[in-house]
């Protein structure tokens, strides 16, 4: 029983990391319809900024995270203007993939040259580092942070997209851009805002997930498949879907690792295959 509880906690934490880090991609793919293979690179930029702020500039964790999110958005907004704007909705997938994967290699190269190939730590504040006793076992204290932030992100996004005027406009634009435009919605600005949101979420995930997915130049490619898998299992653009997918996959991965570590990612991908087989559009994806 304790073992099952133990696995459940590890799974919940890993699932939340998957969620925080993949939800930005889900937003980008679901709302802007860009298969953004540079998502991992964006998350990595956030991680590097946070690491720099914490270790070189001596800032606190909360401030560093904030600077990482805003800084990543600031660095990448010119790309929205110059490149991504051409890719929304109407561009074919092939062009999207070529451009975003090219961008990824570009960012990896620059990062490797400037920061070197070793992994950069993101030290946690005293209260969140080290073990935390939860009665029947010790867990890493940062689990608490990750789980809380995951829940807040999910709620916040749901509120933003479902309950605000901004969300209504985005959904209108996604459903029928031409009609939305003729009703006076400035779709260009909405897309830019969506891009900023996705980038900010990527950076946030990069910082918070760094304890389980360490920040190094190859981060951008190493975990990209996992992010894409979460989005396709959950259904692009669906917050609840991404959350469900993250938890299911987190559980599959964690339980698999506990029971048969030498099988590696076998159980993770087995679950992916089963889910996609039964729900071709993802757990909560829109059926067209």
């Amino acid at each position: 029983m304790i073992t099952i509880l133990s696995i459940a906690i590890d799974a919940l934490a890993f699932g939340m990391v998957l969620f925080i880090i993949s939800i930005g991609l889900s937003v980008m793919m679901g709302l802007a319809r860009v298969v953004n293979l540079a998502h991992g690179a964006f998350a990595m930029i956030g991680g590097y900024i946070a690491s720099y702020m914490l270790r070189e500039a001596g800032a606190g964790f909360a401030l560093s995270t904030l600077v990482a999110v805003l800084g990543t958005i600031a660095i990448l907004m010119p790309l929205e203007f110059l490149l991504y704007r051409r890719l929304y909705r109407n561009a074919d997938a092939f062009r999207q993939i070529l451009m975003t994967i090219g961008l990824t290699f570009f960012i990896i190269g620059i990062t490797n040259t400037v920061f070197g190939p070793t992994s950069k730590p993101i030290p946690l504040p005293e209260a969140l580092s080290g073990p935390l006793d939860i009665g029947f076992r010790m867990v890493p204290a940062h689990y608490v942070l990750v789980i809380a932030c995951g829940a807040i992100t999910a709620l916040g996004l749901w509120f933003l997209l479902d309950k605000t005027q901004f969300g209504t406009r985005i959904r209108a634009t996604v459903d029928n851009a031409a009609m939305a435009e003729s009703l006076g919605i400035r779709t260009e600005i909405l897309y830019a805002a969506t891009f900023a949101l996705a980038v900010g979420l990527a950076a946030f995930g990069g910082v918070l997930g760094a304890q389980l997915l360490p920040i190094e130049p190859y981060y951008a490619l190493r975990y990209m498949v996992i992010f894409l898998v979460v989005v396709s299992v959950g259904g692009a653009g669906s917050i609840l879907g991404a959350l469900a997918a993250s938890l299911v996959l987190g559980l599959a991965s964690t339980a698999g690792k506990y029971m048969a570590p030498e099988f590696g990612d076998f159980f993770f991908y087995l679950t992916v295959i089963l889910v996609v087989f039964i729900f071709p559009h993802g757990l909560l994806g829109a059926r067209k």
Binding site: I7, A255, K257
Partner: peptide, 20 residues
């Protein structure tokens, strides 16, 4: 004896197994 795949980065479950 645990043989960990080279791609592993999340070692929480493995630590739990070792502890058990």
């Amino acid at each position: 004896e645990v043989n960990m795949p080279l791609s592993t980065t999340d070692f929480g479950p493995i630590m739990q197994r070792i502890k058990d």
